[in-house]
């Protein structure tokens, strides 16, 4: 039973990773790609860690460490990329109505 629950959490995590990658493909410019990529993939990793925690309950300490590191570093990484592009002069895409 607990195996099925853990596997379901891993599946949900995989689906969020897929959504992030899909957003990476669909979005029109690089800032929107960073947004969808970071958010969805971060929650995907967290769900995967939760699911693996259900499958192997004695690994929880290291799983929390990985989750904490990712939660601290992932937004910082995307912010730094966005900042570098903004400083380098990449203009964001604008919708048709408000040029």
């Amino acid at each position: 039973m607990i195996n099925i629950l853990g596997s379901l959490f891993i599946l949900v995590g995989a689906l969020f990773c897929f959504l992030g990658a899909l957003g990476l493909m669909r979005m029109p410019d690089v800032y929107n790609r960073i947004q969808t990529g970071t958010k969805a993939v971060t929650l995907g990793v967290l769900f995967t860690l939760l699911g693996v925690g259900f499958l192997h309950p004695d690994w929880w300490a290291k799983l929390i460490a990985i989750g904490g590191f990712l939660l601290m570093t992932n937004p910082v990484g995307s912010s730094v990329i966005a900042r570098a592009l903004y400083k380098a002069g990449v203009q964001p895409w604008r919708a048709e109505g408000d040029r």
Partner: peptide, 23 residues
């Protein structure tokens, strides 16, 4: 820049694949 963003996303997906493979 698009390649860099794709790499950033791919590394995180690969991290979760590695955790999954550990299980």
């Amino acid at each position: 820049p698009d390649r860099l963003v794709a790499t950033d996303t791919l590394t995180v997906v690969a991290t979760s694949i590695l955790v999954f493979m550990a299980a």
